[in-house]
Design a binder for these strands. Structure first.
Lengths: 337, 337
DNA sequence: GCTGGCACTGTTCGCTTCCGAGTGCCAATC
DNA sequence: GATTGGCACTCGGAAGCGAACAGTGCCAGC
């Protein structure tokens, strides 16, 4: 029976994840009621091994799932186990308390790490398409101007720029108040990616003597608008790796190095294709990054095109992982919507 | 000679940190030219052990530094090894590129973790005493208002608040533009901790029908002003723990749990007393937190009263740690000044 | 197609033995 | 009085060995 073989595979994965030890036919029967004898299980195990789903570390040892085995488990056996009501409520109230986008994401990533005991990653939502809601200029010191950009999505970005041309007396607070008003008039309602022309025009229309000072500020705003579209990754629970360090037969160092490399993580999450609310699982070799050949990634899309994920050893608890990732992705999507 | 004993202690610490193995009199001489014989070293070791600075895991094994030994090493032996010029330049240019406070701190903490291979912690600068520079209100959606608080120190805080009372038609964008103007008039220039009275007055002076809507916003701003004084900790390199997991004889789990507990970390950094630019070292038992009994903390003050630190096994490279922490604390202080 | 039985296999565990790094002490030397 | 070479002693860890054990594959019988 095809059915039973998968059931056995599931049991093997479950036991191996729980015990970290190769599981044999007999001990399998101790923990699971399969309704057949050990010999039958052995036969099925043989077949599973032929298919490449499990493997023996050595003769006379139990079996261990292969990457392919985990894949089959995830695809055909693992059922999403919805979170319990108290869990759901706890999550919701914890996330509800978040004051702004940053905090929402920070809390989400921490929660994800805590619930799954893995490393959690959240991609900053890609909101390139946002429109400008407001621009604020605040003179912080004699030669320092704070530029704040607020988008309709409620994201607030800021940058302090040094003033060189604009530091003479005639460019006082009023000057910047006026500039602020004109800038807002020029950019409010426009796409943040589309500010170059209107701002250039604003500069040319400024009084001759003030063009340099205006350009300074305009450049700051353009830089800000540009950098805000940069992707970022928030991470939590990296220390959980210490817990599962034993699961990696190779050195953990390269893996740690990868975690420090924002670029690699960006590529990783950026390559995920899961639709919002859907889950995508990458197992071991399926991850195109050598250092992660013994790791698995469970990710889900949220909002539009952004992703969050957990990263752990291939021998991880996929059921809990998938459920949790999916639940959190949905919550976050809803809060952002 | 007191002198030589300390030199030997230094050599023991150095070797033990490098090899993770108890160091004996002979192997010590192999790696260090002390100008005396093994027997003399043995005698000195005996004395060091009597003083409680080193200890033997068992008879016929080499010696290992005790917490007290590390303490003596740090106090009397370790010399600060200034960073090399290229290092300094790299640090400076990396930090110079930071656009705002948040990014500066993020970069600092990452750098610290990378340079020392330990867990790095940075306390968000305590700027309770800041004055209000500007308040901005932006209606993000029908029933959502974004409140932005900008202080003279250039810090920008934000929060989205739900509008219940103020969602009717008469409270339109103009209403909030007007409210914004009045709020600014009421609070600009005041201490953020001292906004309660003027804002309460603002509410009572508002038109009778709008008081509820005003109170809503005022409460949001007060909450924001309040929460911005909340301390925060930024962490990086937690994964480095996996690298040094072998250094902890006890379970690593409780230690990981501590790292997830912002509160404990806050208490930890908050209890540091190092002046800006000065370094404070806490070794093992000196840390009033059971789970960190095998860890050490190397911290330095920056700005006024805030701290940054690294956390690692007691068996850590204190020389590099102290130098790096001090250097970064000074850089950050300078950039913020 | 499933099962119980059986012979076979390689790891692990406990035991013993042995080696060596390291110590402490002492008498001799500078 | 500090330093040194010599020496006996100790104990943990590596090496070697056999038994126990967990697990497998195969086969005949139901």
């Amino acid at each position: 029976m095809e059915e039973r073989r998968l059931q056995i595979l599931g049991a093997i994965v479950e036991d191996y994840v729980a015990t970290r030890e190769p599981v044999g036919s007999k001990s399998l029967l101790d923990r699971h009621d399969l309704g057949v004898s050990a010999a039958t299980v052995r036969n099925d195990m043989s077949l599973l091994e032929e298919e490449g789903l499990i493997t023996q570390p050595h003769t006379s040892a139990g079996r261990v799932p292969t990457d392919k085995g985990y894949r089959a488990f995830v695809d055909h056996v693992a059922a999403i186990k919805p979170l319990s009501s108290p869990e759901k409520r706890a999550i919701r109230s914890f996330l509800d308390d978040a004051g702004d986008l940053d905090e929402l994401l920070t809390r989400t990533v921490r929660l994800l790490a805590q619930l799954t005991h893995q490393v959690a990653l959240v991609q900053y939502p890609a909101v390139r398409q946002a429109r400008v809601r407001h621009v604020e200029l605040v003179k912080v010191a004699d030669a320092l101007l704070l530029v704040v950009l607020i988008t309709e999505s409620g994201q607030v970005d800021q940058r302090t720029i040094p003033l060189l041309a604009g530091r003479s007396v005639e460019f006082d607070t009023d000057f910047y108040a006026d500039l602020r008003a004109r800038m807002n008039q020029a950019v409010v309602g426009r796409e943040v990616t589309d500010l170059h022309d209107p701002l250039a025009e604003l500069v040319t229309r400024s009084p001759a003597g003030a063009q340099e000072a205006c350009r300074e500020v305009v450049d700051g705003l353009l830089g800000l608008a540009d950098s805000r579209t940069e992707d970022r990754i928030i991470m939590a629970g990296a220390a959980n790796l210490a817990r599962s360090a034993g699961d990696f037969t190779t050195q953990v160092e390269p893996l740690l190095d990868v975690l420090e490399e924002q670029l690699v993580l960006l590529r990783l999450l950026g390559s995920m294709r899961a639709e919002p609310g859907a889950v995508e699982v990458r197992i071991g070799q399926e991850i195109p990054e050598h250092a992660l050949a013994q790791a698995s990634l469970v990710g889900a899309g949220y909002r539009d095109g952004s992703h969050l994920a957990i990263l752990g050893p291939t021998r991880m608890d996929y059921v809990t992982g998938i459920s949790t990732v999916q639940a959190l992705a949905r919550y976050v999507s809803r809060f952002l919507g």
